[in-house]
């Protein structure tokens, strides 16, 4: 029937690692969740990937298609997603959507090293990022409660503060058991799709996963817990955190790290931080809190030499 001809869309760019692996994934996955600008899909191997609209930004496990948004295409969670070499077909009844990857530009999600920085540079960057967050960030998560917050938000903010303190102290002490408790105290904590505790962990874990990090012992703890206790948080958040544990993150985070690595002018770093703060509701602020905490801790653990 004519109306069953798939609508053809092109993947314009995407995570280079994901593009390489796609051809090996054959079989049926399913649509996990549908948003206006992003459709999340589970691959036949159970990996969560994102199909983003043009301009939604580069991120790990993400492909950007030549669409302005996904509205009006009849996409629903649970629909089949058929993976074949060079294409993904979303089985929308009556009008399937086929994305082809030929010619797509690869984007590297790998974070740069900040190992060569002079003493004090990480703390200086962390101070600037914290100031920017305090001035322009959104409260309701790691930055504290919003004015007039109800008891529920206040309780979450208290729990976030407790988890943060517990985890940072554990990393300072190099105590894997306490780190585990700290991660568990934050994982899945917060109302959003990527809970505030997870966003903080993502920023922190990204710094810990950078080459030569003095807090590298956090990474296996996060990986173990994410594998052993996936039910503790949302699928999307877990995927983001696992990528951070592999030193991979979305473009806004990488931009900040690149500027830190090159000791860029404060104005440039400030602008990059503002771009991160624009993500989600409190997600940008919470992730930036984690990143700044990680940089400061790195400075502390490395000492003055």
């Amino acid at each position: 029937m004519r109306h069953c001809e798939p609508i053809g869309l092109r993947v314009e760019s995407g995570d280079a690692g994901l593009l390489r692996r796609l051809d090996a994934w054959r079989g049926e996955g399913r649509v996990h969740s549908v948003f206006t600008r992003v459709v999340n899909v589970l691959t036949p191997r159970g990996t969560l990937i994102a199909l983003a609209a043009r301009g939604a930004g580069h991120a790990p496990r993400t492909l950007a298609a030549d669409v302005t948004d996904w509205a009006g295409r009849g996409l629903l969670a649970g629909q089949a997603a058929v993976f074949a070499p060079g294409s993904i077909t979303l089985a929308v009844p009556g009008r399937p959507v086929r994305l082809t990857t030929a010619g797509a530009r690869g984007w590297s999600a790998a974070a740069p090293s900040v190992a060569g920085l002079r003493p004090g540079a990480r703390a200086t960057a962390a101070d600037l990022l914290d100031r920017c967050n305090a001035e322009h960030g959104v409260r309701g998560g790691m930055l504290g409660a919003t004015p007039g917050a109800g008891p529920m938000e206040a309780a979450i903010v208290r729990a976030l503060h407790h988890g943060r303190t517990l985890l940072l102290d554990a990393i300072r002490a190099g105590d894997a058991g306490l780190m585990r408790q700290g991660v568990l105290a934050l994982l899945g904590l917060g109302p959003g799709l990527t809970p505030a505790g997870d966003d903080f962990l993502t920023g922190l874990c990204l710094v810990a996963a950078l080459p030569g990090s003095a807090q590298a012992s956090l990474v296996p703890v996060v990986r173990d817990l994410a594998s052993a206790r996936p039910e503790r948080t949302t699928d999307l958040s877990l995927a983001t955190l696992l990528e951070a544990a592999d030193a991979r993150a979305r473009a806004e985070l990488l931009d900040i790290l690149r500027l830190v690595a090159h000791t860029a002018a404060p104005g440039e770093l400030h602008a990059a931080a503002r771009a991160l703060l624009a993500i989600g509701h409190t997600s940008g602020s919470d992730t930036l809190s984690g990143l700044a905490a990680g940089l400061r801790l790195e400075e502390e653990l490395r000492g003055p030499l």
Partner: peptide
């Protein structure tokens, strides 16, 4: 209050 049903949110 709206939130995802994670362990930590339920604990709060």
């Amino acid at each position: 209050f709206t939130a995802m049903g994670t362990e930590m949110n339920k604990s709060v």
